[in-house]
């Protein structure tokens, strides 16, 4: 996936896709909760788009817009075998944070 593909002009993931949250630790702002980084989930909903927060924190309203997806994670994927087998956590994530698996 190139940076151009991540520009928000064209969605690179869609509802139903299996995704992994990229492990990113940029020096500035980041809006991917650390407990989902590197974890696998399924895209369940298109939220719409918004200003990419990592960029917006630095440049404000001029930040690029990007698609936001709700990703469902199994509790056991996040917390291990002791998590409730029927529990899920749904997290809204900007597209840059995601890669298809």
């Amino acid at each position: 996936m190139t940076e151009t593909e991540r520009s928000g002009a064209r969605p690179v993931v869609g509802v139903g896709d299996h995704v992994r949250v990229r492990v990113l630790n940029p020096p500035g702002h980041n809006r991917a909760p650390s407990y989902v980084r590197g974890r696998n989930g399924v895209v369940v909903r298109a939220v719409g788009d918004g200003r990419f927060p990592d960029e917006a924190a630095a440049v404000g309203a001029d930040a690029r817009r990007e698609a936001i997806w709700t990703v469902a994670f199994a509790g056991t994927e996040l917390w291990g075998p002791d998590a409730g087998p029927r529990d899920t956590v749904h997290v809204d994530l900007f597209e840059t944070y995601l890669e298809r698996t």
Partner: peptide, 29 residues
């Protein structure tokens, strides 16, 4: 991490076969 445990502390006990969906609002919704 433990939605059922937290819900129980609020007095809400759910049957084991009910799926608990936690929604973490971290973006524009």
């Amino acid at each position: 991490r433990d939605p059922r445990g937290v819900l129980a502390e609020f007095g809400t006990t759910l049957p084991d076969d009910v799926e608990v969906r936690v929604w973490d609002a971290s973006a524009e919704a």
